[in-house]
Structure formats: structure tokens, C-alpha cells
Nucleic acid binder design. Structure first.
Length: 589
RNA sequence: GGAGCCGUGGUGUAGCCAGGUUAACACGCCGGCCUGUCAAGCCGGAGAUCGCGGGUUCAAAUCCCGUCGGUUCCGCCA
């Protein structure tokens, strides 16, 4: 190996300012760009803090100038020089360091680089697969680099905040036990106990409850979690939770502490003041007003029930919906007035894409209504609609008729309309709590109840008496935090009574034996004086994604996987050697 | 499991629907000129058998079928 002498930096590139003029600095960094004018050479030198222009003038140092001539993109340099103010007319206002430049006196090329497979620059529209294969180059781009810096600051603030509130950061096992309910587990074969398997945690749920039984009072962890399910823009096989649990609390205690934590993080990291407490609504209210349990409250277009207006309608679709016990619900589209026909057709198409059999639109035209169903409406029905104050001239009302199945369609239409017609929302971050979820959902396929949250969620006290009689009407002490229509996290107060836990397991169709086998250790712990406790878990990736203004959590994860679960950089997943399988007593299919 | 979109020099795109010249343009790359640029400029050059396989055709980047990869969504994700 040849000796590559180089000098350590005295400053970071992106930090130089007018105040530094006159000082001698040594910089270490990468070549963003070289501009060779024959006589003078400019190099933009980049490090984690940003970039600064370095000037190589042969009259100052012939050697440095000559060396700079050899330099190419992404070479690694060590450069000594003097900071000086740029000539008045060559200040670059687009750069934080644009008022200064470094007059190079000495340059050493620490390392060369191949020409990168794509240009290292902001907003590179480069194919994501290629970026993932060369992620270490992709991360050199400022937007990805800044997202990872942002992420680190968020976790730092979370740790600081929770620590200051008496939370202990405690690690829980990654090699753990497979449990029924929930997502598909990732499974790890045991060598020491052939034929047996660990599961990677879907969340540290059970362990954090045990820590409460253990009397640690307040726990948190920034925990990696694993779920072997299909991916989305906001879902990866492995992801990170901000997980926490508290003893002797009620829902309001967790909620208000989290209000405070988010206000703190947003202030510290983004300089954004959030108004607290965040609004709260029950699950029932969310479904009624928005058709979804994660409403985007940045805009209005609240869904109303117009069943009354059409109570005696002769229009067949409305008639049969109402006779079947359904409703007619809809909303007035914001930002859309007297639209052309194709826009209205687009609404119907979107509804059908969302799975609706149809969608009715009505446009106010003076004292009448334009609608494909206008001829089926009585004068009285038209009059009722026209009396609505929220329907201005040219305004568009969209309606769907049916039962619960129309909720997601209307929710989807609301999002579509917001995307397409609504002006940019005034509020950048609109938080809302959704509380009191149903304890159970009915699983039509398996013909049994399933936990809406998880099996350890406490039913609301007032529902206990009809738990077995009317399970679907039972609500729980649960709460989800929603930001801009994205679920950031959810939690609940847990069951701390072993008898009640038993009843819930039974309703879930878990026999005593199964419950004992799968969760016996928890049930046992609950017999040793568990405190009332509850907590919440957040998707860190989603939080950072929204704070960074990105559309995918891949943009805030250093080494994400593709939709097919591949790590294009390392090549995972991959086959293993037969010997490895043999050692694990596994046979390939 | 299902539906949609994308795949053309190193990168981003055009060409594809109406099959037929040497596959075009920009950026990047290489070389030359150039002492104030910052997306430097000017001149010159190299570089793609059009993701892969099959089919139709006298002829396929283009039409058809399949497949692979990426992506978005539905199912799934307590």
C-alpha cells in the first residue's frame, strides 16, 4: 500500500460563514463538482454538513492547482486553505456558504472514485432500484442525508423527553416466542433445540407488560419490529417503534403526555409550534364524520347523513338502501364549482375504483339540480337539497347509498377530492386522537371475533357487563394518534385482571389450553400483583416520513427493502449452504 | 392472491398507439481550449442488439404471449 498522507479537518465544509474569513482551515470531503477554467479551478467540496467552494489558483499554489486538475467527481480530498470573502459579484445566495470560499494552498487526494452510476444531486429522478443498489451513494444526496439526520434528531429528542419523565430505556428480546393473533411471524430456527423456532417480535407488547408487573413503572424502547406481511409505501418488513408503557395510568394520562412529547419533538427538531391538546374524537364519531378511523383533518368535507332528505324517495338505489337498513351519506366537494362533465365522470370512476357500485353527484344550478338521477327526484327532495347552506351555486354534492361498506368509499372519495380539488391545506400538521375503538371485530372468513387492537386491551369498564352478550358493542380503553390521515401510533390501557383476560381469550376463541400454551407466562404474571398499566407504540418511520415531507418510509430508512422483500444492496434474502440447513435440521422443499 | 403503471447508452427521457433509414435529445463520461465559475462555457469523441424469453411478420424498441425487476393500490398488516 502506498502511503496516503492526509491532514485531518479543522472544520466542516458546510459550516463556513462570513465570520470565518481570514482563518486557515483544513477540509475533508467529497468532490461534488469541479469547474476547470484552465487557469483557475473551482471545486465544490461536500461533507455531511453541506458544501463549500474551494478555489485553486496557480498563483497561490501551483502544486495544489495541478493536483486539482486530476480530481474527478466523488474523489475524497483533504484540502488546506484560507477562507476569504467572495468578490461581491460572485456571491452565491443559494448556498449557506455562498458568501465565502476557500483559497487552496495544499491539496491531497485521499481517494479516487469510479464514476457513480447516477448523479449525486438533489431530486435525482433516478430509478429507485438503482438507488437502492448503491444506497451509500444515494445517501450522499442531500435530501436523503438530511432525512437521516432528522431521524436521528427525532430519536434523540424522544430519548431526552421520555428520560426526563422518568422512563427507563430497556431492551427486550428479538429472539422470542411466536404468538397467535396479529401479523405473520418471521421465524428463526433453533440450532440448540432442533425442530423448534423463535419468532421475531411484531412488537415488544408482552415484555413491556411484564416490565410493568416487574415494577419498573415507566418503560420505553426504540424497538425494531418485524411483520411478515406485504409491503406498502408506509410499511416495511422490519420497522421501528417508539414503544412505551406506564403504570397506574388512565387513557388521558398517556394521551396528554404524548401531546406534550410531540409538541416537544416538533419544536425541537422542526421549530414548529403545535397547538395542544390535540383534538380527540371517538371511533364512532370518526366513522360518522370521516368514514375512517384515521381521518385527515387538514380539510373539511365532513360526511353527512342525508337519509332523512330521501326518506320517501322513489329513486330505486336510495329506496333499496334505506329499505335494507342502510344510509345515504355524502359530502360537498371543496374547491370544485360548476365542473365540466369529465370531472364528474372522474368522480364516479374513482368511486368505482374504490369498489363502489356507483356514486351519485348533484350540482347546484340556480334553483335546480344537475344530476344523472335528477329525473328520479321529487320536487320536494330537490328543494331539501337546495336549502342546504353548504351547497353554493355550482357546488357539487356526492352521495353513496348502502351500509357500512360505503364508509371506506366515502373516505377514499374525500382523499381523492382533497388531492385533486382542495387548495393546499393551511395546516401542515393536523393531529387528532381517535379513541374508544370497538374491542372486537367480526372476522367473516374465520367466523370468530378478533381483537381490534390486541388481546390485552382493556374493555371499557361500563361495557364489562355485556362483554359476552354483545361483544361487538364493547368499546375499549384504546387510542390512536393520527396525523394528516396517517396512523402514527396506537395504544391502550391493558387488562390487569387475569379473570378478565381469560374472558377475552375465550371470546377470541382461544381455549384455556391454547391461551395457557401461548400466553401462559403473561397470565401467570397477572396473578402476581400487576399494576394498572397502559401505553402506546408509534411507527417511528411514519413520524419521520411526515416530518420530512416524504411519501414513503423508504425515504427515511437508510437501507430499506423493496416491495418483494429484497435488500438490493446486500442481496438478501439468499440461499444458505446445505451445511447450515443440516445443522438446523432443516430440509429445503 | 388480485389490479394498475414503469423498464430504450452511465442517468433521465423521446420514439411504441398507426412495424420499415444510421434509435433522437439532455445530463454525465473522455479529450482539447479557456483565470471567477457555481447546472461554467466553447470544440471534438466514445457509449444503447431498446429488461429477458418466445411468437406474429419479408421486417419488431414498436404488435401478441410469457417471464423477471421496480412501484402504487386492494386483500393482508392484533
Amino acid at each position: 500500500m502506498e502511503d496516503k498522507a492526509w491532514s485531518k479537518r479543522t472544520r466542516y465544509c458546510g459550516t463556513l460563514r462570513r465570520d470565518d474569513v481570514g482563518s486557515e482551515v483544513t477540509l475533508n470531503g467529497w468532490v461534488q463538482r469541479r469547474r476547470d477554467h484552465g487557469g483557475v479551478i473551482f471545486i465544490d467540496l461536500r461533507d455531511v454538513t453541506g458544501l463549500v467552494q474551494v478555489v485553486f489558483n496557480p498563483e497561490i499554489s501551483a502544486a495544489a492547482h495541478a493536483a486539482a486538475g486530476e480530481v474527478r467527481g466523488e474523489y475524497v480530498l483533504s484540502c488546506r486553505g484560507v477562507v476569504r470573502a467572495r468578490p461581491e459579484d460572485s456571491v452565491n445566495p443559494r448556498l449557506p456558504t455562498g458568501e465565502v470560499e476557500v483559497m487552496a494552498e495544499e491539496l491531497s487526494i485521499i481517494n479516487t472514485s469510479l464514476t457513480p452510476p447516477f448523479e449525486i444531486e438533489e431530486d435525482s429522478g433516478v430509478d429507485e432500484a438503482l438507488r437502492l443498489r448503491y444506497r451509500y451513494l444515494d445517501i450522499r444526496r442531500p435530501d436523503l442525508r438530511d432525512s437521516l439526520i432528522l431521524r436521528s434528531r427525532v430519536t434523540g429528542e424522544v430519548r431526552g423527553f421520555l428520560s426526563s419523565r422518568g422512563f427507563l430505556e430497556i431492551e427486550t428480546p428479538v429472539l422470542t416466542k411466536s404468538t397467535p393473533e396479529g401479523a405473520r411471524d418471521f421465524v428463526v430456527p433453533s440450532r440448540l433445540q432442533p425442530g423448534k423456532f423463535y419468532a421475531l417480535p411484531q412488537s415488544p407488547q408482552l415484555f413491556k407488560q411484564l416490565l410493568m408487573v416487574a415494577g419498573l413503572d415507566r418503560y420505553y424502547q426504540i424497538a425494531r419490529c418485524f411483520r411478515d406481511e406485504d409491503m406498502r409505501a408506509d410499511r416495511q418488513l422490519e420497522f421501528t417503534q417508539i414503544d412505551l408503557e406506564m403504570s397506574f395510568v388512565e387513557p388521558g394520562d398517556v394521551i396528554s403526555l404524548m401531546d406534550e412529547m410531540f409538541a416537544h419533538i416538533f419544536r425541537a427538531v422542526l421549530g414548529v409550534e403545535l397547538e395542544t391538546p390535540f383534538p380527540r374524537m371517538t371511533w364512532h364519531e370518526a366513522m360518522a364524520r370521516y368514514g375512517t378511523d384515521r381521518p385527515d383533518t387538514r380539510f373539511g368535507m365532513e360526511i353527512g347523513d342525508l337519509s332523512g332528505s330521501f326518506a320517501s324517495s322513489g329513486f330505486k338505489v336510495f329506496r333499496s338502501a334505506l329499505d335494507g337498513g342502510g344510509r345515504i351519506r355524502g359530502f360537498v366537494v371543496e374547491g370544485l364549482a360548476a365542473p365540466p362533465r369529465r370531472e364528474l365522470d372522474g368522480l364516479v370512476e374513482e368511486a368505482q375504483r374504490l369498489g363502489a357500485s356507483g356514486l351519485v353527484w348533484m350540482v347546484r344550478e340556480g334553483e335546480g339540480l344537475k344530476s344523472p338521477v335528477a329525473k328520479f327526484l321529487s320536487e320536494e327532495e330537490v328543494a331539501v337539497i337546495l336549502r342546504r347552506e353548504d351547497l353554493p351555486e355550482g357546488g357539487v354534492l356526492v352521495l353513496a347509498a348502502g351500509s357500512a361498506e360505503i364508509d371506506p368509499i366515502l373516505a377514499g372519495m374525500r382523499e381523492y377530492c382533497a388531492r385533486r380539488f382542495a387548495p393546499a391545506p393551511a395546516e401542515r400538521f393536523s393531529f387528532v386522537w381517535v379513541t374508544d375503538f370497538p374491542l372486537f371485530d367480526w372476522d367473516e372468513e374465520e367466523k370468530r371475533y378478533k381483537s381490534n387492537h390486541h388481546p390485552f386491551t382493556s374493555p371499557s369498564r361500563e361495557c364489562l357487563e355485556y362483554l359476552e352478550e354483545r361483544p361487538l358493542e364493547v368499546t375499549s380503553d384504546s387510542y390512536d394518534m393520527v396525523l394528516n390521515g396517517i396512523e402514527l401510533g396506537g395504544g391502550s390501557i391493558r387488562i390487569y385482571d387475569p379473570e378478565l383476560q381469560d374472558r377475552v381469550f375465550r371470546l377470541l376463541g382461544l381455549s384455556r389450553e391454547e391461551a395457557e400454551e401461548k400466553f401462559g407466562f403473561l397470565l401467570e404474571a397477572l396473578r402476581y400483583g400487576p399494576p394498572p398499566h397502559g401505553g402506546i407504540a408509534y411507527g417511528l418511520d411514519r413520524i419521520v416520513m411526515l416530518m420530512a415531507g416524504r411519501d414513503s418510509i423508504r425515504d427515511v430508512i437508510a437501507f430499506p427493502k423493496t416491495q418483494s422483500g429484497a435488500d438490493l444492496l446486500s442481496g438478501a434474502p439468499d440461499a444458505v449452504y446445505p451445511d447450515q440447513l443440516k445443522e438446523l435440521r432443516l430440509r429445503p422443499t
